[in-house]
Amino acid sequence: MKALCCFLFLYILSSPSLNEASVPAPTRRHLGPNKDTGVLTDFGFNFDIEINARLIFPSLRLKKAYFAFQEWKKFITSDPQNMLKNWDGADVCSYTGVFCENAPDGSNVMTVAAIDLNHGDIAGQLIPHLGLLTDLSVFHMNSNRFGGPIPSSFSSLTTLYEFDISNNGFDGPFPDVVFDMPNLKYLDLRYNNFEGEIPPQLFDKDLDAIFLNNNRFNSSIPENIGNSNASVIVLANNELKGCIPHSIGQMARLDEIILANNQLKGCLPKELGNLENITVLDLSNNNLMGSIPEGFGNLNCIEMIDIGHNQFTGTVVDAVCTLPKLMNFTFADNFFDVLEEKCDKPVKPELVLDCRQNCLPGKPDQKDETTCKRRKPQKRIPVL
């Protein structure tokens, strides 16, 4: 929690100045024509009337936050840990999971800067009123039982930096509202029921971390994935099809990419060898085929490679097994039939190689000979 507070302090100091003129017109229309009137025309109420007149708030922003939280409570159906027990009264900043800081526009006004209800096992829905929290920089809601759509009013969260709704029951298509969050850097939608296409706009957005794993996305990986500045991309455990785009080699900042447990096919693009800063590459449990690209020998920062449970053939080359930082190389359950010398007997004793269920002569736990012959391409005899 201390780390979260430090992050908020540093983020607010570095946030650009925001005022009503800088908010896009669609946002102002959604929340009413005047940010400071308290009237929300699309919601159909004036919260000056709705709120108990005896409550005193240090700022209009906290008054709006109070109203948003009270409305949200009405859509909470289960709170087994009583995390929201103290969500009453005007002191919004004392609510469990709510963190306040000075507003990022330099007005020296206290405002809600973060919500963190991780691991609360809370059931309910997100509501449009949360769009009132326009100074929010962190929204952490992982490991709960929220469902339904993400409200379009979240486009008002123009200072949001981290959006984590992982391990819930959200469904429907990819929530395009995240494209209206200009300062978003960390996006975590994993372990939900989102489905359909991964939109290409995702990789044009300046994100540092993208977690979409364990959903039901079933499109191909967009060709413009190489436009992304992300250091971590995890798309595992979906139903993604097609080939790995060649543009992936453009991702100079990429540190980890995990595409495991999908339905990807085709050969590995040689451009993977351009990922000079990558440390983790997991392409396991797909339908990929062909040989290991020569460029793999350029991955001098790589620590873990997993290409197991695919249909690769040919030779496991020394250039990979001698990479300076490689600690774990898994290529089990493929059709490799040759190990070069330094893969057969690694120079580094700490290197873990998993070569089971291939077609490697003399190695234990290999595929049977009939399976290997059936998979091995046959030489064509010319017709005379």
Score class of each variant (00 low, 15 high):
N237R: 06
S78T: 12
E341A: 12
N218F: 05
R375T: 09
N108T: 06
V347Y: 06
P200C: 07
F211N: 06
D368C: 09
F203W: 01
I56L: 06
P149K: 06
D188H: 11
L10Q: 13
I244A: 02
G147E: 09
N285F: 09
Q263P: 00
C6N: 13
G290H: 09
Q311Y: 04
P24K: 02
D88C: 09
F296W: 02
G172I: 08
G32R: 06
I150R: 00
T322D: 13
I292D: 07
L4W: 03
E197Y: 03
D368F: 09
G89P: 12
S107G: 15
F329D: 06
W72A: 05
F154K: 02
P324K: 14
N274W: 00
Y191G: 01
V92S: 12
H119G: 07
N298E: 00
C93F: 09
T41Y: 10
L13W: 06
G148W: 02
T41E: 15
L62A: 10
N227T: 00
S155T: 05
R29N: 11
P364W: 01
T134F: 13
A68S: 12
L60S: 14
A68K: 09
L235T: 00
P361E: 07
P33L: 13
V23P: 06
V178Y: 11
F312A: 05
I115C: 07
C5I: 10
L339Q: 14
F329P: 00
V138Y: 05
K63R: 15
M289S: 15
A230L: 01
L351N: 08
H30K: 09
D344E: 14
Q81K: 14
L384D: 13
V109K: 12
A90M: 01
Q357F: 14
S219C: 10
A319Q: 13
S59C: 11
G249C: 05
D105Y: 04
S155V: 03
P16Q: 07
D344Y: 04
S228M: 03
G196S: 13
Q357M: 14
Q250F: 04
S94P: 15
V177Y: 08
E294T: 10
S143I: 04
D79Q: 08
E303L: 01
D333M: 03
N287P: 02
P173A: 14
L299E: 07
P361V: 04
P382W: 12
N227L: 00
V347H: 07
E276L: 04
K64P: 06
C321N: 12
Q311N: 10
N238I: 02
S156Y: 06
T313L: 15
L160R: 07
L187V: 04
K63C: 08
D180W: 05
K35I: 11
N274I: 00
N298C: 02
K342N: 15
S291Y: 04
K74Q: 14
K74I: 05
N142I: 00
K373Y: 06
D176A: 09
M327C: 07
F163D: 00
Y66A: 08
Q70G: 09
T279A: 11
A252E: 11
F179K: 01
F329R: 03
K205N: 02
K64T: 08
V347L: 15
E162P: 00
V316Y: 02
S78V: 05
L299M: 12
P269Y: 01
V109I: 10
